[in-house]
Design a protein around this nucleic acid. Structure first.
Length: 625
DNA sequence: GCAAGGTC
């Protein structure tokens, strides 16, 4: 009897190849798929515990297979009232460039007994799996469907996954289908409404698409909120007391525990009392070991934040470069939320590969020779990908300048994770002078450890404090009452923006940089290098007049929750979770959310004058009273 | 001409 055929389908070609290599034991045939240069079919034999000795075809899709759009009759902006898009008929299509991939799955499924899905183990992966299943059933209605549970492509892990198939999670797939439908309906309805209404207010906006999206608007909202905090900032004068004491040739500066107060008279009285007391007395002398923790394993969000801070590129660029490095096999998959390495992960073999480098090779060797520490475990695990790490060594001469910087960051971060924390000794001295308490803090770095390789962190010894005894008294060498002014916050920087998006659940690791780029493309915000940032300034975002007009306009339309706030997106996220946990169904959530947004939409439409006035005021400098 | 999410 001929062996059973099994069709395996991964989310992307790289996973298909890695899995084929492990299951095929290095022996497999590669076949091209007509019409697509990336997707390949790998054929090999494998003995499954469940299905016996089988002939396997391992292939992949390339992300989502289908897309959702409105039926043709709703395509014309002029003839479809935007509000109709909340209930307009939608169609699921397979775009022309994905047709060959879909056809391949149909054909391969025809003689297969089992469809074994190897998409990423996250929500989107579950949905992509359901798209694959749909195609496979078109070729073979009776095909058995299973899915693999895996979170990395290490050999033993892959084999373990192959031998323990589980079921596709339809709840997760329908949570994603819900998100897709809501994003389309809400995004398209608001985009058409505001574009059609605002476009002809003046030449500056003519032919411009003024888009709305559940992610791009809150992203804009963060930038505008900070802008107003800067704009409305009024400096306040404060007063403080500073004490210095010259001992053993060291000038020790003591800071006031109250930091500063905003009442000059009060500080003057306090200061007088101190002077009257004349002698200050040492009340606390403490030396204790301290440490600066090594960084956590690298996630995408962290790569984007640190990258836009230290590598002279924006988050979108960092992701593009990381993607290239991944495609070439130098680093692992760059889109991950996981900040913990699996326990069986072969960290040492990846460290080993870095020992040949001129800059950090000796450090890597030092780790292998005994300095290695198991990385800290963060609290995130997407169950799909390990933290970002170097997988192969590449010399800097074979990389572009940008690639070299990102690769170097990934390597240094990885080596730092596998290192000991930096160790130091902290000295704290407290004095009482009059009724006030002042303190001095000193740091002595004893062992730099991870800092030697992770050049992005700074931790330096301070000036060494002289010896003090508890109870010792002295007359301060100098004491001054100082005044100062509170300073305005800065505009939102790119790492801050990425951090806010992450904290508020706006976008995913793979899309955050896109949303940031989108609000720039739409000319809602402008990016510029932060002043005083030296040779390597971080970028900061300032909203354009249009960006301010939109946010302020919506804030005044009379909505319970403005669309520029992250709240509405968060709600969709919670509802997706409810679907995943079986507490709600797709149709319930679509119905609820559409009704909710229809209300927001209706109110916006009725008060469209408010939005228009805001645009006239900010974009066209008109006096709107 | 709309979104956000995958991916090349």
């Amino acid at each position: 009897m001929a062996p059973q055929r099994i069709l395996c389908v991964a989310e992307k070609p790289s996973i298909a190849k890695a899995v084929a290599q492990h299951l095929g034991g290095g022996r497999f045939i590669t076949r091209n798929v007509r019409g697509n240069t990336f997707v390949k079919n790998y054929e090999f034999d494998f003995s499954f515990a469940q299905w016996g000795h089988c002939s396997v075809t391992m292939t992949s899709v390339s992300g989502h297979l289908t897309s959702l759009d409105f039926a043709d009759r709703y395509k014309k902006w002029q003839t479809t009232p935007p509000g109709q898009l909340f209930e307009a008929e939608t169609v699921i299509k397979i775009d022309a460039e994905r047709k060959p991939i879909a056809d391949n799955i149909q054909q391969q499924a025809r003689y297969a007994k089992v469809l074994f899905i190897w998409t990423d183990c996250d929500r989107e992966g579950e949905h992509i799996g359901s798209e694959v299943r749909e195609q496979a059933r078109k070729g073979n209605a009776r095909i058995t469907v299973k899915r693999a549970r895996f979170s990395n492509t290490e050999r033993t892990h892959v084999i373990q996954a192959a031998q323990n198939p589980i079921e596709l999670d339809d709840r997760q797939a329908s949570a994603v289908a819900t998100r897709i439908e809501l994003d389309l309906r809400i995004g398209a309805a608001f985009t058409r409404l505001q574009t059609l209404q605002l476009q002809h207010l003046g030449d500056l906006l003519a032919d411009k698409v003024i888009s709305y999206g559940s992610c791009q608007f809150p992203t804009l909202g963060f930038v505008v909120e900070r802008y107003f905090r800067v704009k409305n900032f009024r400096p306040e004068t404060f007063w403080s007391i500073k004490v210095t004491y010259l001992k053993e040739g060291v000038k020790v500066n003591f800071s006031w525990n109250r930091v500063h107060l905003f009442d000059r008279a009060v500080v003057t009285i306090i200061f007088e009392k101190c002077l009257d007391a004349r002698l200050a007395r040492v009340t606390k002398v403490q030396k204790k070991p301290t440490s600066k923790w090594r960084p956590l394993p690298l996630t995408t969000v962290e790569l984007q934040m640190q990258g836009s801070r230290f590598l002279r590129m924006d988050s979108k660029k960092v992701m593009k470069i990381a993607e290239q490095l991944y495609q070439k096999g130098w680093i692992s998959y760059p889109r991950t939320e996981t900040d913990q390495f699996p326990p069986e992960f072969s960290l040492r073999s990846f460290i080993e590969k870095q020992t040949q480098d001129n800059n950090w090779g000796a450090y890597a060797q030092g780790l292998l020779d005994g300095a290695f520490r198991q990385p800290r475990q963060g609290r995130h695990n997407d169950q799909a990908h390990p933290p970002i790490h170097p997988v192969n060594y590449v010399t800097s001469s074979s990389l572009s300048d940008d690639e070299r910087r990102v690769y170097e960051f990934v390597v240094r971060r990885f080596l730092a994770c596998c290192s000991e924390d930096a160790k130091g000794e902290a000295t704290d001295i407290e004095i009482e002078w009059g009724e006030e308490v002042f303190h001095a803090h000193g740091l002595l770095v004893l062992a730099r450890n991870y800092l030697d390789v992770y050049v992005y962190d700074k931790w330096e010894s301070s000036q060494q404090l002289p010896h003090f005894e508890i109870g010792e008294s002295f007359e301060p060498t100098e004491a001054n009452m100082m005044d100062g002014k509170t300073t305005a916050p800065g505009y939102l920087t790119e790492p801050e923006l990425i951090g806010l998006m992450d904290a508020n659940g706006i976008g995913t690791d793979a899309t955050m940089a896109d949303h940031v780029a989108m609000i720039k493309d739409r000319e809602y915000v402008a990016a510029r290098p932060k002043a005083g940032g030296g040779r390597n300034p971080v970028r900061e975002f300032v909203p354009t007049r249009l960006g301010v007009a939109l946010v302020e306009g919506y804030d005044n339309v009379g909505l319970d929750v403005s669309v520029s706030k992250p709240f509405l997106r968060k709600e969709i996220e919670l509802k997706m979770k409810a679907i995943c946990e079986g507490r709600k169904t797709r149709s319930e959530v679509v119905h609820e959310s559409i009704e909710e947004y229809r209300e927001v939409f209706g109110r916006t439409q009725r008060n469209i004058g408010v939005l228009k006035r805001s645009v006239r005021k900010y974009v066209f400098d008109e006096d709107v009273g």
